[in-house]
Every structure is written in structure tokens, then in C-alpha cells.
Nucleic acid binder design. Structure first.
Lengths: 199, 199, 199, 199
DNA sequence: TATTAATCGAGACGGTACGTCGCGTCTTACC
DNA sequence: GGTAAGACGCGACGTACCGTCTCGATTAATA
């Protein structure tokens, strides 16, 4: 099926790979995604264009790898469980708000979310590598709360997490509002209001 | 101060305007947003490039106008109010799901959502022209329900609507799940669970 | 038959055409034919690459036109006919030797002769536009001499001219010897020796 | 002083050398000189690129060696001397015409002649290895004829040979005419007309 | 006959130029 | 003055080769 002879990954230059990531991330911050070019990345990385084309199919793929490589370092270690569900959710979501408000983070993340909208393949990878892990820790925390009786049985935890995270992401992506601590708190409280078991 | 002499809109060719919209919408469906070009639109519309550049600043703006022109025909007339809030929300959201599942609708809408992520100006227009009107009718319906005592007082209705619509949009945009009637119903039920007044 | 829509020559930019010629001729002198590039010409001429590709199929064609445009100014006005055939031939051939020894002339001419060897189409144009006119004046002069009885009847004048001009060109092209006045004189004398009528 | 460590010729792979020659000659016939590439030769020869770069400085040099190796087999053994100078010259020149009309011979020879025009170094080697030996046998034959009194004393034999061979080569290289037996005969007769001693 | 150092096939690398596409501007002729 | 048409300067695309380089794996002179 593969008609392009796959290059030999064992001979790949680690130095070039890193330089490409650095160049891609810094450039996307400086000029924006639309004006980000493969030539620009290659030139800043001190690398031949072919070295990029050899290993990635598109600038979106480069950026996704670059961004992922930078993010992977926070190995996600699950949400805190202090027993106070609302407090736990608020604390983590506030931290996420800080991150989403950080300009360095914004440019590549926005670019990838946007590119994903028009490229199904990319979108799947984006979700699987960047969104899914973050979502799962919420799912687990809610599941634990459900077992502890803090969340009503029978509730679809997955949907509950969407109710929490999607408004947050959407606000940010569409710029329909600021991601303030107040907003986060309001959102968590309203979501939890719907999850609590009835007396 | 305006150094670009504003064109005289009264002499504008309506035939060209329409042809450009048709060309833009059909092309974005055929080749996708990334491969949609001004030259392509002009050529299919049988129009000079300058005629496009004279009236729009970018291909995104053309597409936004084209799409809006097509959508404006459903003049939004408010949500039904049968007295059964859950039923009203489900019925409208199911209809929206059908719309979002329609391929003709998808390509331009995805394209615009994506383009907005990297273009703040465009994003504001997109939200104001396409998303805000749809959101408002939900806000009004919930406000009415709140006054009728079906929704707890003190709840931020705006946030409540986000909890309903964002998971829906997000699923679709990121392709994290299908927009089925089941999903819609589950979502409405779970959101309403949190809105109901406590005994 | 023409599958490429021919561009509209009436809208062609004369200024660009000239700038391209100048750039091509100066560059071929500076860097040689092999390192002459379309990009280089475009860049020096202050012209887009496409403007070159629109009007010429190859760098050889550009150079041929550029060179021809420069040469066409000497409208060939026939060989002198002083009655002394040997003197006439020597004087013109000496002038040609001077020309061939001029570095400005050499680079493009060599390049074109070489490119023609591998490109039949180009070769025909090169011969027709640059070599044939020069050859014809010799043919005419010899024909006149033949009618005057200075050259034996029955001699193939065309072949006679080749005997005169080819050794000259060949020496130059292959660098097998210098084009001195002595050489020219020897050559003319030896050729004429074979042309004279027998007693 | 030599900063490039000279490779050790004694360990050289004869099999590779031959494969490179075969590949170069067949490729130049198939795709022409301009599209002949080192990578293409290496690939067809089943050889690493470095093996070519180790032993030759350019594709022209490879081709020259390849062609020379093929040609060297006819060890030139002097022109026949039957006593009839015209007949001797015609017979050899007719054979040469056949050779120049052979497609297998044409591609590399044309390519080398052309490459030589723009590369003085190559040109000297080309002349010395391929043209000079062929020329010398004519010079010797004419010298013999001169001593036998068939050619006038005092004639520059070298120039006489040029008068014979250059028109021939030039015709072929520039495609200004066919190399027929008739042409050869005419040429020989006209040249000899000029060489014969006067009564 | 085993050692060992250079050559070998392979192909990744930093580059340059290719020929094409589309941008946004400008010019021309028409209506 | 708006329009269809399209040439222009420009910049990026994705590809092809350049000549250099680094890898084991032969492989042929020497120990």
C-alpha cells in the first residue's frame, strides 16, 4: 500500500528533528499559522526542506508533533482527589484556564484545532494525542465520585465531562468570552448541580 | 482618511455577486477550504478577480457572506414554547443535528469555524452573524422558563445555554462523536437536571 | 494542438522583455551557461519567474532571443566586392575572428552552440537565426565570383563556403587553435587555391 | 598538498566501474545529456553515489571515460595507403559518416562536444582523447602524399585536414545537412583540388 | 589465514533550482 | 465607473539532484 519507500528512521538526525520543532513553535507564535511556511521552518531550523518533507506530510503535522513533544513532558498524573469534588475540579480547571490564556500556548493550539476542522485525519490525531488524555482524567475523577455516591448513579459521566469542558474550550476557541476564575467556578457549580444525587 | 476609494455600491453587479456566492459554496464543497482559491471562484463565477477583491478582503469573508446569504433565509423566529421545556429543546436540537449532519452545510461551516480560530476579526463576525442569533433564542426560551419557575432562579442562563450547545458543537467540530437523537436527548436531560429548582 | 492557452502578446511588457535580455546576457558572461538559472535571470531583471516561463520554454530560448536581439542590429549588408576575392574574404573573416575573440560575444555564443547540440529544435533556430545569414553572404560573394570566372564553374559553392567557415568555427568552438589573422589568411588562400579555374 | 586523500586505485571495484559505464551510456541514449544525472547512473548501475564521486569529478567526466572505453577498442591503425589518395580519403570518411549516423554513437558524442564548449578543461581532454587521434592519421596520410608529390609542397597539411574534417563535423553537430556518401565525395574532391601541385 | 583498513551500496543531510500555483495589484478594452 | 480578462512582481509549493556525510557489510592487500 505504501508507495513511498519509507525512509530509514534509524538514521534520522535527532538534532534536525529538534531544530524543526523549535523553529515551528517559535515561528507560529511570531507570524501566525497562515503565514507559517515549510520554507520558513526549514530556513530557521538550518535544515533542508526535504528533511521536513521526508518525515512529515504537512505543516500541520509538523506543528502537531512539535506541540505534542513540548506538552508530553507534563505526564498527566490524574486529578487530585481531596474528597471535595467541586474544589478539585475548580482547581484543575483554573490551572487549565491559565494555560489557555498563555500566548505561547495559544498560537499552536488554535492553529491545530483549526487545521483539524478541515482535515479529518489530523483531527483524529489531535484529539487522541492532545484532548483525549486530558478528558480522561476528568472522566476518572467523576467515576470515582459516582462510586462514592457524590454523583448520581445512572449519569453518563462522559457527557457530564463534555458539559464541563466543551463550554470552556468553545469560549476560548471562538473568543466568545474570557476564561476567568469566576467563569470556571460558575461552570463547575452549575454542572455539579446537575450531577448530585437527589435526596 | 480612507486611502482606498470606497467602491460605489449602487453600481454593483448583483449578477456577479450571486455568481460569486454560488461558485464559492460549490467549490468549498468540492475541493475543501484549503484548496479554495479566489482565482478558482472568479473563474467558476465567470468574473474578474478584481470584482472579488473590490468587495471582499479575503476568501474567508467571501465564504462567510456566501454562507450567511444562504442561511439568512431561515429567519430565526424563536424557539417553540409548548410549555414542555425538555421537549422544546430536544425538538430544536434534533433539527440542528440534522442540519449539522448535512454535507452541504458542513464544508463551509467547518471552514469558517476553522478560519475564525486564527483570525480574530473574522471570528467575531462569524460569531455575531451565525452563532449569536442561534444562541439567543435558547437564552430567551430559558429565561421564559426561569420566569415560569421551571428553572431555578439565580442560575446564569447564558452559562446554561453554553452547557447545552458547546458540547454539541464541539463534538461535531472535533469529530469526537456522532450527533444522534439519543445524544441530544441525553444532553438535554442532563443539563435540565441541573437547572430545575430544588424542592 | 496548442494545449497551453497562448498568452496575449499585445499586453506584454516591453520593459520586462528588455530587462530579461540584459540580465541573461550579463549573467551568462559572469557565471557561465551551466550556472545560469531562470531564477537568477528573473531576480536580476526584477521580474517574476512566471514572466519568463510565460514567454520562453527554456533558458536556452531566452538566451537565444537575448543574443539575437543584440546581434540583429548589425543588419548584415553583404560582403564587400572590391574585385579582389581573396582580399574581400580575408578582411571579413578577420573581422569575424575579432568578434569571436571578444569575451562578451563568446559566452552566449558558445552556450547556444552547445545547447543546440543536445536540442534539435533549438539547434535549428540557432542555425537559422544566427549562422545561416552569415553564411549566405559568403555564398553570394562566391557565386558572383563564379559568374565573373574567378571561381571554376561546376563547383558547389555551398560546400566551398563550408570549407572556409567550418574550420574557423570548429577551431574556436573546440579550442583547437587560435583565430589569428595568419590563420585566416592561410585558410582563405588554401580554399581559393581549390576554387580557381584550371588553365 | 593534495587535501583530498587520493583513493587507492588498487582496491577499486572493476565490476562497479564497468556497471557505471554501461549505465551512463545507456542512460544518455535514453534521456539525453541534460537529464542524465549522477543519481540516475548510480541507481541503474546498482552503485552508491559516492563510488562515482570518488573516481570522477562530474557527469561529463564519467561519460567521457565511458565513451572512450567503448571507442578505444578500435585501436586506430592509420589510414590505408593504396596509392589513390582520393579513394583512401573517401573510403575512410564514408566509414566515419556511417559511424556518426549511428544513434548509439550520437548521444554521447554530441553531449561531450557540447559540454566541452562550456568547459575548457573537459574540452581539452575531449579533443586530445577523441578528436586528435583521428585527425592525426589524416595528417600522416597527407604528409605521405606530399612526400610522394601528390600534394603540393608548401601546403600546411594541418589546415588542409581541417578543411576536410571540420565541414564534416560541423554539418553533423549543427545538423546543417546530411552526411551522405555524395557529400563526402564532393568534399574530398574539392579539398584535393586545392592540394594538387600546379603543373 | 586471519587481520585490517579502504571501498562498497545505501541513503539522510543541507542546499539550490526547478516549474507551478495563487496572491493581490495593475492595465486594457468594453459596456 | 464597474466589469471580464489576464499580465505582472512576488513568494511558497513540493520535487529532483547536487555533493557531502555517515553507516554497516564486503573485500582485497598485508601480517
Amino acid at each position: 500500500m505504501a508507495n513511498k519507500a519509507a525512509p530509514d528512521a534509524s538514521r534520522r538526525s535527532e538534532r534536525s528533528r529538534r531544530a524543526i520543532f523549535d523553529a515551528a513553535l517559535s515561528l507560529v507564535g511570531e507570524v501566525g499559522y497562515d503565514k507559517l511556511t515549510i520554507e520558513g521552518i526549514a530556513s530557521r531550523a538550518g535544515v533542508g526542506k526535504q528533511t521536513i518533507y521526508r518525515w512529515w506530510p504537512s505543516k500541520a503535522a509538523v506543528l502537531l508533533d512539535a506541540f505534542t513533544a513540548g506538552v508530553d513532558e507534563y505526564s498527566t498524573q490524574g486529578l487530585p482527589d481531596t474528597g471535595d469534588l467541586a474544589a478539585d475540579l475548580k482547581s484543575v480547571l483554573r490551572a487549565t484556564a491559565d494555560e489557555f490564556n498563555d500566548p505561547v500556548f495559544q498560537a499552536p493550539y488554535r492553529a491545530l484545532a483549526a487545521a483539524g476542522a478541515n482535515d479529518e485525519e489530523l483531527s483524529r490525531t489531535f484529539v487522541a494525542r492532545l484532548m483525549e488524555p486530558g478528558t480522561l482524567v476528568y472522566v476518572e475523577r467523576l467515576r470515582a465520585a459516582q462510586e462514592a455516591g457524590e454523583v448520581a448513579a445512572g449519569i453518563d459521566v462522559r457527557v457530564a465531562v463534555e458539559m464541563l469542558l466543551s463550554p470552556f474550550s468553545q469560549r476560548w476557541l471562538m473568543r466568545t468570552g474570557e476564561l476567568t476564575y469566576d467563569y470556571v467556578d460558575t461552570l463547575v457549580d452549575l454542572v455539579l448541580r446537575g450531577l448530585r444525587p437527589r435526596d
